[in-house]
Amino acid sequence: MIQIKNLTKKYGSTVALDRLDLEIHPGEIIGLFGPNGAGKTTLIKSIFGFVNYQGSITLDGEPITRKNIARMSFGTCEHSFFPGINANDHAEFYRDHFQSFDERRFAVLMDFFDLPRNKKIKHMSTGQQNQFEVIMALSQGSDYIFLDEPFAGNDIFNREDFYKVLLGMLGPDETLLLSTHLIEEVSGLVSRAVLLDKGKIIGDKQIAELDSENAGLIDYIKDAYSYKADRVFQALEQLSPEGE
């Protein structure tokens, strides 16, 4: 379990994360939702220690260091592959550096996405690069997989296939945290939704709970952000010339 307690992150005087608490349990598929700037990326980067923060983050009770950090993997829209080498060389690198690198999964996913093995990653299309980024995160052999907006630039068919592959592939104890703005698309995929806004968690709900309440995820999310359906209308009204 990953336990986050009282996590605060400031960039200068801007508060990116505000005394945030969160527990991530084995086997969960978590959708991390929130508008741009809500702190989704900062939260993930804090967990990995890629940014400094205040508060405590532990993995099964231990602080996250080089000793246990390989139990987590990270695929990001910023990309973290090595642009100058090809897929086979990546596999070799991961084999050398991650004991639990999943050779089979790597091969299956490479075939599934039909990615070339001998092409430098920087020469692939953006869509292919995103796929490769995700492949490496999934194949590292980690227990906790974090994907941050992994599908920017991929078409919907690609994404839908990908969700299916994910579901077929993940073991019962593998945990996935998916940060995305494609809420509708992943609403059936996730087992839990965590809603972030202005550095705070404003909603955290198991889908099973929502099901019992007969409520849909989208409505729950709209409620949490107190989405005002007549917002557009009001804005237009204010803009319209006087006297009309």
């Binding site: 299916k164 579901l167 059936g188 995929l189 996730v190 087992s191 099973a208 099901d211």
Partner: peptide, 13 residues
């Protein structure tokens, strides 16, 4: 679950 891209818990339910 895989066919529909839906969480196994949901299918189970």
């Amino acid at each position: 679950s895989v066919l529909l891209g839906i969480n196994p818990n949901t299918v189970q339910r």
